[in-house]
Design a protein around this nucleic acid. Structure first.
Lengths: 206, 206
DNA sequence: GTCTATAACACGATAGAC
DNA sequence: GTCTATCGTGTTATAGAC
């Protein structure tokens, strides 16, 4: 009650603090106390509002992970493989640049083979299934060239998701920090080159 | 004393158990007790032989991570970018397929932003520096085509290292399990396509 | 809804016997 | 070198007061 101006309620504050801290330290590396301290909440409130640390994790994804109709505005481009793959790369990377924490947590949980991956698979697979089908149809239509669909799907995902490790490879870099738009453009070029396809909106039509 | 036949000594047994368990559950997700149970050793021996859990981690890499002269047999190929990048991809992936645990642990630590990454950087960077320099020289010599060296290095690494997540994406796969040699060949084709370079030992010369 | 206080347990490390 | 027993700390979860 009396929701003080724009102040989010304590439940939301806990979720936001958990998002930040899990991304920074991992789920297991973060204690309920740390989350509550950061949220300015009492330790007992995680149990009260979510029913324990594990359910807090679940609630985090229910709250912040984009649902299926995030791709609705791009329905048209996603019908044709030649544009669709570029659209998937662009929109996915834009989402990650905009709010990196959720995808960081997902990658951590995957690498840790955590018991929580099924939660993640259920939410993420609908998107990757779109990408997979675009690759497959693109090959059938002669737009893309590759031998193995599964291996290629992994490499395309690797090409676009490995940027999360930039902080680690930093000491190896020779150029300055890159702008998100440039990284996205470079990624689309890279992947389309790898698939043996012309870059959409270039050369041919202009 | 009396090193019973081919039985490794207890120190080595602890290291091997740690390698397996850290890869499966992460460093923080694995307890010293679990490691010692798996090694058939007493809990106190980690402190005695290594001086604590953190030093066990360090010892693990001193013992199992390949040192600089692992690339010595390939000195000749590594002089020319057009062959060198393929050699780096092939040898790195062969190592990972042969003994995946160490590289799994490395990727986990990187994703977790653990305080142990400096140990890993020190060991891994010499290899990635070779790859980076090959990409740079390849571009100068007109063999490779790309805009940003740093972004490209990340994408090449992503293309070859993302396979570790195959278990997670399994439910999305349409084809059966791929042979390591096929995956390596596909990766080299993919990367060379992305770099706008002809695949080494194909078309032109045959 | 929110708090304090505490239960119940697991962790890494080690002292000291053998 | 290897063991047992234990210390000190930190964890999640919750009972019960407000």
């Amino acid at each position: 009650m009396t929701p003080a101006a724009n102040e989010p309620d304590i439940r939301t504050k806990i979720l936001l603090a958990a998002k930040t801290l899990f991304a920074k330290q991992g789920f297991e590396g973060t204690t309920v106390r740390q989350v509550c301290d950061a949220a300015g909440a009492n330790v007992a409130l995680v149990s009260y509002h979510f029913g324990g640390k594990d359910n807090l994790f679940k609630a985090l994804f229910d709250e912040f992970f984009p649902n299926g109709d995030a791709v609705e505005p791009f329905r048209e481009q996603l019908r044709r493989p030649a544009e669709g793959v570029a659209t998937m790369i662009e929109q996915t990377m834009r989402y990650i640049f905009r709010d990196p924490d959720i995808s960081t947590i997902m990658e951590q949980e995957i690498m840790m083979r955590s018991p929580r991956i099924s939660i993640i698979q259920e939410l993420a697979f609908p998107f990757w299934r779109i990408l997979r089908d675009l690759l497959q149809r693109g090959r059938e239509e002669g737009v893309f060239r590759f031998r193995c669909l599964d291996t290629t799907l992994l490499m395309v995902l690797g090409s676009m998701l490995f940027h999360k490790r930039a902080y680690y490879f930093q000491p190896l870099f020779l150029e300055g920090r890159q702008q998100p738009d440039d990284v996205i453009a470079d990624t689309i070029r890279y992947v389309y080159g790898a698939l043996g396809a012309p870059i959409p909106g270039e050369a041919a039509a202009r």
